[in-house]
Write a protein that binds this DNA or RNA. Structure first.
Lengths: 149, 149
DNA sequence: GTTAGTGCAAATCGTTTGCACGGTT
DNA sequence: AACCGTGCAAACGATTTGCACTAAC
């Protein structure tokens, strides 16, 4: 996984290239995403930040705006839960897909080279300019299967 | 693809098993989904029904409630567009995945046996009881690539 | 007759936007 | 100084819900 220094430099470069500014809020959102492993909703991210930086004023709108920016810049990835919102995570680590537990909403990451390759072949076959993909296997995780008994 | 008679019988059976009623609205929603190929948002479905059955009174709430029921019953599948809603289609035909155009929201269906098989292997590997999966390849379709020039 | 289903409108939830002020360049 | 970013609250769009009425059983 990329180190934080490098990530920060490349984020600053992206901002500069687009005439955007590097603010406290953007700094802290990126740092928080980097240092907390896992997948967060915008609201979850906000409450982590409010807890970790009580002095900082920050609103949910900024979280959304910054996550949008980070997603465009390919720094974070998102996974969608229908009308139930989206979850975000740092996306500069190795790409992966998800197993989604329909009971507890837990996410398990995996990477499968065979699938990755097939996806590229399929996109090519349909003259599709692939910009990304997401694959979610829905089901009931090991732990929740036990609970049900 | 399953014929409509059989589908209707199994839907009625599901309703009966759960102490639910077979209503005009449910009848027509299923029929409309079956006879119109494609992927529809709840709003789109409602306007098709209102056009085809001008005498029927039906509201958007019923569409949502029925689609939820049909999805639980595995009769329809949905594909999510983040906060931009969901689209539904009859799911009793052969399973397939989607190419999603990020410009025009068009969906292209495909089926890839290699990927299907890999998914089962992955679920097994993580002791996941797979209940479903969705895979969406995002990108720009052939037509939209041309438009951009 | 009992119970579930309906349409409607209000409520809700996640997300986006307009605006005046504050911070970065 | 110029301009972007911010918080706030209002606006928004998709979906859900409470209610009194209606229809399926």
């Amino acid at each position: 996984m990329i180190d934080y220094e490098t990530l920060l430099i490349s984020f600053k470069q992206i901002l500069k290239d687009n005439g955007l500014k590097f603010t406290k809020q953007r700094d802290i959102i990126l740092k928080t995403l980097y240092s907390n492993t896992g997948h967060f909703t915008p609201e979850e991210l906000l409450s982590i930040i409010k807890k970790d930086y009580p002095k900082l004023t920050i609103g949910i709108a900024t979280i959304y705006r910054t996550l949008g920016l980070l997603e465009e810049s390919k720094i974070v990835d998102s996974i969608s839960f229908g009308a139930k919102g989206k979850k975000y995570e740092i996306g500069v680590k190795a790409h992966h897909d998800h197993l989604v537990c329909i009971e507890c909403a837990k996410l398990i990451e995996f990477l499968d080279e065979t699938i990755e390759l097939q996806q590229e072949l399929i996109a090519k076959k349909f003259d599709f300019k692939m910009t990304g993909h997401n694959m979610n296997i829905m089901g009931i995780c090991k732990e929740c299967q036990k609970k049900k008994i």
